[in-house]
Design a protein around this nucleic acid. Sequence first.
RNA 1: GUGAGUGUAGCUCAGGUGGUAGAGCCCCGGGUUGUGGCCCCGGUUGUCGUGGGUUCGAGUCCCAUCACUCACCCCA
Length: 419
Amino acid sequence: MIEAPKGTRDVLPDEIGRWQFVEECARETFERYAFREIRTPIFESTELFARGIGEGSDIVAKEMYTFHDRKGRSVTLRPENTAPVARAFIEHQMHRAPGLQRMYYIGPMFRYERPQKGRMRQFHQIGVEVFGSDHPAVDAETLEMLMAFLGRLGLDDAELALNSVGDPVCRPVYRKALLAYLEPRRDTLCEDCRRRMADNPLRCFDCKVEADRAVMARAPAITDYLCAACREHFGRVTEYLRAYGIRHRLDPRLVRGLDYYRRTSFEVTLQGLGAQNALLGGGRYDGLIKELGGPEVPGFGFAVGEERLVMSLPAAAAVSRGTPEIFIATVDERGVERALLVARALRRVGRRVVFDPLPDKSLRAQLRRANDLQVRFVLILGETEVRERAVTIKRMSDGSQETIAEDRVGARLAEMAGA
RNA sequence: GUGAGUGUAGCUCAGGUGGUAGAGCCCCGGGUUGUGGCCCCGGUUGUCGUGGGUUCGAGUCCCAUCACUCACCCCA
């Protein structure tokens, strides 16, 4: 049997309502803030991610789905979408448009990893990007939009953690200070942390080893090393958040894995997600456009893991949608032909009609099926009805039924449905 | 890439110490020769993940392999 590839899965019709609910909520919320959708290719030149995300990041180093096309070009299934959106921004000279550019996207991403709870090789992200301003109000307003979005989904226990990771002026200074603290303690740290010290000492803050956490708790905090400009920016962001009344936790140990982040960095965590408790992450990336060969344009954005979102949705949000309201039952071939015509007439006036051509099944079996589908009405087209050009309408809620002329069915159903 | 756990019916799972498979749900039919839900009666459903080995005999023991799950790494 051929099965879905490792790390991929089907979202079946029974579950799709939750996905559609989340996506509609996202579109509606984001568009209130003047964000517009952008759709970029699902694969890009490998170089885009190597330069955008950073050669040293785990994503680029070991998690990309990279292959060569028939002409030998190296292409990669996108592992994230900020770099592709930035690429599109540059390619289409969007900095020449007046004002800020605000975009959102919804779609699949790919990372070659061992699957576990909340982590798939093909997963989906809902994300937004704002280009063209480094004003802290952009950070604050986008965060406010994010929290509004989560609120509409009923995720009230989401926790926002916030930090500033500095910029190319102050981060190297902090890095040096952190290493100066860690070096004398190298021997007490775990193997992983010693490795982290070499490539990105800030990652030591993510360590889960108890002893290491104690060491890191007393480590210097990046917020004490920010340059004046970064400190000013971060201060303004938190002020705006206070003005909004948005609950958040300042976490000087919050570091993110992608190289392009500057200044504001944040994530939202939720209980119940398993070991992968980050629901989303984001931040400011003022150097990215330039790095990719574009003009000096600042940016800010975040990406939500849609699987993790759907997983965390309150049960009450499990809306079933578009279910049929009318079922047509027949008992012979003559009835089938009438059923096709009656169904078309009803659909033309907007009713959702299901007709399973099962005249060989007993009426009882067909009604059982109608009951499973939870339709409100069943139209019966038996021998008598066909002969008299009539239709029997059965109301499933109380079992009552009446037989009327076929050409009056639409009007009568409208009355009954309205009542 | 590393570690642990689990693979038996469409689904959820039972099957001490080896004797060639079971329940509930679902599905189908009937109780109602044209009427759902509840109830009752009857019925179908399996290469026991795969391949080897031990044995008179393997769902059960051994080895290998694959898949899934969870965790590490890292991240959404």
